[in-house]
Amino acid sequence: MEILSWILTIATIVAIYSIMGLALNVHFGYTNLPNFGIAGFFAVGAYASAILTAPHRFREMEIFAGFPGGVAGRIEAPFIVGLLAAIVLAGVVGLIIGIPLLRLREDYLAVASIGIAQTIYYVAVNELWLTTGSAGIRLIPMPTGNRYLYFLLVLLLLAIAYWVVNRFYSTPIGRVWRGVREDEVITASLGKSIFRSRMSAWIAGCSIMGAAGCLWAHYSMAIQPGEFVPTTTFLVWIFVIVGGLRNNKGILLGAILIMGFFEQGTRFLPAIGAPYIMPAIRLIIIGVLLVVFVRFRPQGVLPERHKKIEAHIR
């Protein structure tokens, strides 16, 4: 039974991260927007849903423990409201941030988006009234009440995200996105506003990341700012690159390989020495893997369909 529960944990986490990977594919794979602030949008979604759906009991406990008691737990909305709020809010934050960011050259955008995610992190740590600070929000309800059913829910949302992202690939807007990626000048001369089409891809991706954040909050039932650090972002990037940039199946595969085997699968091995040593070794291995993959197989395990990939990543 223990093994089953272990597999379930890993599978749920892999599925949630896969959703983020798909969103990154919309950003970077389709439109060449290197978003290094994934953790920020993940946090926005997680906190939006957690604040809205946390039970009154949580707020009462906070007040009982001598804290002022913030927004979290005032509303106790149902899960679906939290999910929608996560999607909408992450999209809105994406819109606001996108206005300055999407004009930037790609490497500037990468650095600036790290700054965005860090800013969101600092807000999560310091705005006690909103997020209860580094103690985090607890008692977030798991909507189905049962981890097996919740896993099915996550799978359902992953399937929806996969379908949506795949649709994007072949719809007119997806073609414009890829057009922008291939050649801005030609796309612009066809009368497409580059800024608008980038923005729509950006918001779509951010919203999907927000949804993943919501799923994460309701799965772990307690969130803290420490979960939304740059390392989270880098993990997504790494499995997307290893699995195959710009190929949605590759992204699922990368999530299973990296998040499943390395990041989560080894989590339950006996700890060597201090508790921080194993995670550190895992991250070292993942960092080395990234370097090796980019060096020797930039197209990842599964390359993009009939496209010259090197031309994009190089």
């Binding site: 993942i286 960092g287 930039p298």
Partner: peptide, 21 residues
């Protein structure tokens, strides 16, 4: 002759390794 963005991504991996060492 990989692009600047690829080098940036690789440098993230390198940073991860240093930090955890």
């Amino acid at each position: 002759k990989v692009g600047p963005l690829t080098l940036l991504v690789v440098s993230l991996g390198v940073g991860l390794v240093i930090r955890n060492v």
